[in-house]
């Protein structure tokens, strides 16, 4: 189960001669901004306090991120 819906995963080529045991997969993030060409007007907004906490006024532009250290990666 992915913790972050913006996360993409792939399994890199594994050689039988790799020196180290393979990690399960590689991950990278595709943030929400990649799907917005021009922000439409009148999007729903966070309350001011919530907006400060999230770093953006608009829930649809919020991008979560979880530390790989915290995920045990």
């Amino acid at each position: 189960m992915k913790m972050n819906h913006e996360e993409r995963t792939y399994v890199p080529f594994r050689s039988p001669f790799d020196p180290c045991p393979p990690l399960p997969c590689r991950t990278y993030v595709v943030p929400v901004n990649q799907y917005v060409v021009f922000q439409p007007p009148d999007l729903p907004q966070f309350s001011p306090a919530e907006a400060l906490k999230h770093g953006t006024l608009w829930p649809s532009l919020y991008s979560p991120y979880v530390s790989r250290k915290m995920k045990g990666e």
């Binding site: 901004n33 021009f38 906490k53 770093g55 953006t56 532009l61 919020y62 991008s63």
Partner: peptide, 17 residues
Amino acid sequence: LKFLREREIIHAIRFRE
């Protein structure tokens, strides 16, 4: 740091606009 990361994302949208 997560706040700062989110700001980068918003800035990228503004430059795209």
